[in-house]
Simulated scan of single mutants.
Amino acid sequence: MSDSKWREEICRYGRSLFERGLTPGSSGNISYRMDDGGWLVTPTNASMGFLDPARLSRLDSAGRLLSGDPPTKEIPLHSALYDSRTSARAIVHLHSTHAVAVSMLPEIDPRSVLPPMTPYGLMRAGQVALVPYHRPGDPAVADAIRGLAGRYSSVLLANHGPVVASTSLEGAVFATEELEETAKLYLLLRGLNPRYLTPAQVGDLVTTFGLEVPHPGHVHNASCVDGSCVGLARLATPASDD
């Protein structure tokens, strides 16, 4: 696909996310890694609902601006996720309401933010890690993401929002949407003792769809209070990017 087509695709997906209230105001950003190792990325202070393809930031492989408007201040987190997940071609970062809300709850296990609730939650977003709060644009967030060693395709920034990588732009968008819906379900069912997927059901998904689970068998809901988790650990690593 040509450079101009990718620009159009980024703007099309950005508008879709904006129109459904998943990225309000000028929040959120999208990047796509080109064949030459450089990126197309949404500009700083730009609304995802009103992106201009010609004004997207074009960066070289070292992150230097080649053309377009200045890029999003969140370049460090994009760079860190690309560096640690070399198969990634696209990254979506949103400030979606339910995912942000979940990131602020005291019981969240940073190794496994959400329990296995739906098949597509695991198949698209995989398991989600929580990264401690950093101010937007803080280079230290890159170290936190690199510290995950590429095990997660979906990361939730505390008090901030989700960051999702995939092998395709479409995959990153769909996974981000699925993460938001899973977070919404979690909040709706919180305190109601819902029936999550069983280890056997998760194991069937892993086998059937080839999901990446380095620690099979440790798949269930965990209850965490003040940082201490009891019960079985949840799925510890993300599903595949596809």
Results as ranks from 00 to 15, higher is better:
Val92Ala: 15
Gln201Ala: 15
Thr182Gly: 03
Ala90Cys: 14
Leu156Arg: 05
Tyr196Leu: 07
Ala144Ser: 09
Val219Gly: 12
Thr97Lys: 08
Val225Lys: 09
Glu177Phe: 06
Arg89Ala: 10
Val230Pro: 08
Leu205His: 02
Ser84Ile: 00
Leu105Ile: 03
Ile75Ser: 15
Gly68His: 03
Asp241Arg: 07
Pro53Gln: 10
Pro76Asp: 06
Ser103Ile: 02
Phe50Arg: 08
Ala80Lys: 03
Pro139Cys: 08
Thr182Tyr: 02
Val163Ala: 15
Asp109Trp: 02
Asp36His: 00
Ala175Gly: 11
Ser96Asp: 10
Thr118Met: 09
Val206Pro: 01
Ala129Glu: 01
Gly231Lys: 07
Asp204Lys: 00
Ala200Pro: 08
Ile10Arg: 12
Pro43Gln: 12
Gly68Gln: 02
Leu51Arg: 04
Met34Gly: 07
Val41Met: 15
Gly137Asn: 11
Pro119Met: 06
Ala142Cys: 09
Glu107Phe: 06
Thr44Leu: 14
Ser87Gln: 15
Arg33Phe: 05
Gly147Asp: 07
Pro70Asp: 12
Ala239Asp: 03
Ala175Leu: 13
Gly63Pro: 01
Pro132Glu: 15
Ile10Gln: 10
Ser16Pro: 14
Val202Ala: 09
Met117Glu: 06
Pro132Phe: 12
Ala183Gly: 05
Val131Met: 11
Leu105His: 07
Ala46Phe: 04
Asp226Pro: 04
Arg55Pro: 14
Arg124Thr: 03
Pro194Leu: 10
Asp36Tyr: 01
Ile91Gly: 06
Asp226Asn: 12
Pro110His: 06
Tyr120Asn: 07
Pro71Asp: 08
Pro194Lys: 04
Ser31Asn: 14
Ala175Cys: 11
Phe50Glu: 11
